[in-house]
Design a binder for these strands. Sequence first.
DNA 1: ATATAGAAAATGAATGTTCATTCTTTTTTA
DNA 2: TAAAAAAGAATGAACATTCATTTTCTATAT
Lengths: 192, 192
Amino acid sequence: MAALQKSIDKRNALIQATIELVNNDGFHATPMSKIAKMASVSPATIYLYFDNKQDLVNKTYIEVKAYYTAYAFETYDESMPVEVGFEVIWKRIAQFKIKESANALFLAQCDNTPMIDEESRQEGIKHLQPLLDLWARGKIEGVIKPLSDYLLYAYAINPLSFLMMAQNRGSVKLTKLELDQAFEAAWSSIKV
Amino acid sequence: MAALQKSIDKRNALIQATIELVNNDGFHATPMSKIAKMASVSPATIYLYFDNKQDLVNKTYIEVKAYYTAYAFETYDESMPVEVGFEVIWKRIAQFKIKESANALFLAQCDNTPMIDEESRQEGIKHLQPLLDLWARGKIEGVIKPLSDYLLYAYAINPLSFLMMAQNRGSVKLTKLELDQAFEAAWSSIKV
DNA sequence: ATATAGAAAATGAATGTTCATTCTTTTTTA
DNA sequence: TAAAAAAGAATGAACATTCATTTTCTATAT
């Protein structure tokens, strides 16, 4: 038990170090030795937990993605009206991008580069299903425009990623007002 | 004259090879030797045209960005009404993402990773000024919502990048209809 | 027009470093 | 005390960059 606990701590430390270093320097500019040092572990120890560098980053991606989607749907309930459901999910996602910005930044980087295996990427997409179901219901009820899921995502959700990245770079500071405005813009673009 | 011409050809070949290889493998997974081979040139020759690898990718970025913005504003004229001007620019940008997808993909990758120097990134942003001016005019005339430029960009322009990347990955195929729908969504989110 | 010397451009082969991964030994755990 | 976990040092490959030569240009003298 104590041993297992210790192992989990080490694994977590490795995952955290990977996120932070990849965020700062990018995947290929991050040596295993640096990850090990930041996790207070020998380089060789990494290979007790992961097969190799690619496996480490794939598993980190999947783990962060799972955390993200759990966070996103935390307060959502399928019995909510479409409009309410969308607002609830959208605001949780926004909150995630703000409060968990390191995690969010890591996901954005993974989604925008060839650093992740296509297989792991697919794995990550599945998790958004409840949102797709909500949109399907919204289309049937005539509340949401009959657009493809990709279009809905591009206008309703993805802009948050862009804003988060800009904020993280220091180019912009998202106020409460701007966040409300962003939600309005998102809703305007997909509502009937 | 003939010599200069030859030099420009080699430089272009190097830039093209950089774009293609970085798109496929990412910056740090692209060795200089591979770039040289694709450009039919010796590795040493790269250093006659660029200081080092970072300089090569910075210059490639700035060059592609300049091409992009020239393309975007090609058919725009400041005397146009705001609504028309926006549509004209938006559609040119869409066209660029579709017809010049390799260039567009390269820019997206640069904008979403730490691979480019902050200085080169700043350099690239300036070029969008005519669009910002158009928005300023639109706000004064009460045609466009009084949102920050980052918000406007996030909802009016950036979704195109997302759609382009998804299309490039084969996840979606943008039809003429979907492009029109995308424009409608973009306009809905920023118009008063 | 042609030949040629000197400069510029280009090359392939080194160089030295960095890094992922493995090996052998030591430490910790049960 | 034996098995598991961890460590640090070693290994070998990959890579950015440089070096020593060779090739190509160009401008001038014949």
